[in-house]
Design a protein around this nucleic acid. Structure first.
Length: 496
RNA sequence: CGGGAAGUAGUUCAGCCCGGUGGAAUGCCUGCUUUGGGAGCAGGAGGUCGCAGGUUCGAAUCCUGUCUUCCCGACCA
């Protein structure tokens, strides 16, 4: 009996469970550089599927991909006052462009003669470099709208990092659009929020609350920030995506004007929107269990794995001969399949390993099945298995994958519903928030009240929901702290 | 960036207090037997003890500095 290391349970230590799962499931690991991760092939395969699915949806919205530089002149960042205020404290700065041999010994040192005239910032986000570029692209209303997206890395010098959830460097996409009218820009920011919500729910199987950020939580430089918020299994909230209506702030800072039909100069209206590798963290913390990763089929790099059980090569070949036509049919239907023919590990080892990796469906076939014309089908989401006939197995498996996808979503939604409740007094709130989950409360709309609640309870307003959560009605009331009127309940939670 | 803990074989850890040629388990390699829930036996390879200085005849062990990770704060997606 191998003395393998089990994952810590979620109940024992959620944070430790997460950290170890990321590494043991082969998603990512720490790198030699503080706060920066190595995303391993298995983890990157999931990210590539995320990219692929999102990219397709963006293109349906008329978005085109482009690429802007990693380095941003320092002066650009300071053009928009709130923007620089928001990011200045976490920027990495490039000051020199050359190394030289250390005159006093081994290795290389920065060449003091190679100091840059103007220092360059490693992008924490690209609004400034993009708007300085858009200025050259826009002169007439006929040039609008511009709908660009870039897939890239950004860097924010974080004090405390965790794989996927908060790393100094992370991968993301940032969309930047320019519009002729306020209405069009606002509508576009809203539309991209819907794209994110659709993606989160149908591909990642993560239920989200669509909402608006309170002024305290708004993106630096935006007039309005929309977001999708998800609930993790430990009851904490995680912002899964944001879409900003930037108004004319960046157009004014970078002097981007266009000539309207009426032959008048007007400033351009802007949006930006993004999701990052943080989604990987959301994925893990929404579905996985104490046995390891649970991946919704739409995102799983391997959707079905076949573990043949054999003693001799003849037996293996007999199994493969029986299964190959079935697997080919499934592959033609677009299913991602792996057949594990290695004899390096025993079947029991493979079972445990594919569970750790979150493969949605595991098939096992041995001599017994071959005789009976059956196969063992195991589901990762429910950890159940049954032996079924090979007749019509392809259709059964295809619908099983869809069922698992739905079940992942339903389970997560039920968990969120079970951990969402209304809360009417601040005293009650202080107790309830310790249990985690979403608390729907009335708030007077002032930053002061939100700040006070944050200081006293660590909870923040995750969003002002665009529509009432399922099972709840939108109704006015009074603020739980100050008693002032409140038009609707907002979502409070402790956040990642 | 403050407070705490830790860095020794691929991995998890013992050894450190009290200095004297570095251990275990697991993993890896080879062979045989195994294979329906993390296989067994036998043999083998694998470490300048995070890094840099210092003390000493001699440092994994003592001292100083530094880097990284984890936990708690402050900050933030």
């Amino acid at each position: 009996m191998a003395n393998f290391q089990k994952l810590p349970s979620r109940a024992e230590d959620y944070s430790k469970w997460y950290n170890e799962l990321v590494v043991k499931a082969d998603l990512a690991e720490q790198s030699a550089v503080r706060g920066c991760m190595v995303i391993k092939p298995y983890g990157y395969a999931i990210w590539e599927t995320i990219q692929h699915e999102l990219d397709r949806r963006f293109k349906e919205q008329g978005v085109k991909n482009a690429y802007f530089p990693l380095l941003i002149p320092k002066s650009f960042l300071s053009r928009e006052a709130e923007h620089v205020e928001g990011f200045a404290k976490e920027c990495a700065v490039v000051t020199h462009h050359r190394l030289m041999n250390d005159p006093n010994g081994k290795g290389v040192v920065v060449d003091p003669n190679a100091k840059l005239e103007e220092e360059l910032i490693i992008r924490p986000t690209s609004e400034t470099i993009i708007w300085s570029t858009y200025k050259n692209w826009i002169s007439s209303y006929r040039d609008l709208p511009i709908l660009c997206n870039q897939w890239c890395n950004v860097m924010r010098w974080e004090m405390r990092t965790r794989l996927f959830l908060r790393t100094a460097e992370f991968l993301w996409q940032e969309g930047h659009t320019a519009h002729a009218t306020k209405e069009e820009a606002e509508a576009y920011a809203r539309r991209m929020l819907d794209v994110y919500a659709d993606f989160a729910e149908n591909v990642m199987a993560i239920p989200v609350v669509k909402g608006v950020k309170s002024p305290n939580e708004r993106f630096a430089g935006a007039l309005n920030t929309y977001c999708i918020e998800a609930m993790m299994q430990d009851g904490k909230a995680l912002q899964a995506g944001t879409s900003h209506f930037l108004g004319q702030n960046f157009a004014k800072s970078f002097d981007v004007q266009f000539l309207s039909k009426e032959n008048k100069y007007e400033y351009v209206w802007a949006t930006s929107w993004g999701v990052s590798t943080r989604l990987m963290g959301a994925l893990i913390m929404t579905h996985s269990d104490d046995n390891g990763l649970v991946l919704p089929p739409h995102l799983a790099p391997i959707q079905i794995v076949l573990v043949p059980i054999f003693k001799t090569e003849e037996q293996l070949n007999a199994i493969l001969n029986r299964m190959n036509p079935i697997l080919e049919k499934l592959q033609k239907a677009g299913v991602r399949i792996k057949v594990d023919t290695t004899d390096k590990y025993t079947p029991g080892y493979k079972f445990a390993d594919y569970e750790l990796k979150g493969v949605p469906v595991r098939l096992a076939m041995g001599g017994r099945d071959l005789e009976n014309g059956t196969i063992e089908v195991a589901r990762r989401d429910t950890l159940t298995k049954e032996t079924v006939s090979l007749d019509g197995i392809e259709e059964k498996l295809l619908s099983l994958l869809e069922e698992i996808q739905k079940n992942c979503y339903t389970k997560a939604l039920n968990y969120r519903i079970a951990n969402t409740r209304e809360c009417n007094s601040y005293e009650e709130f202080k107790e309830e928030i310790k249990k985690g989950g979403f608390l729907l409360c009335h708030w007077d709309g002032t930053p002061e009240t939100e700040e006070r609640i944050k200081e006293e309870t660590k909870a923040t307003i995750r969003c002002i929901p665009l529509e009432a959560l399922p099972g709840y009605k939108e109704e006015p009331g009074v603020c739980m702290v100050t008693g002032k009127p409140s038009p609707r309940r907002v979502v409070f939670a402790i956040a990642y």
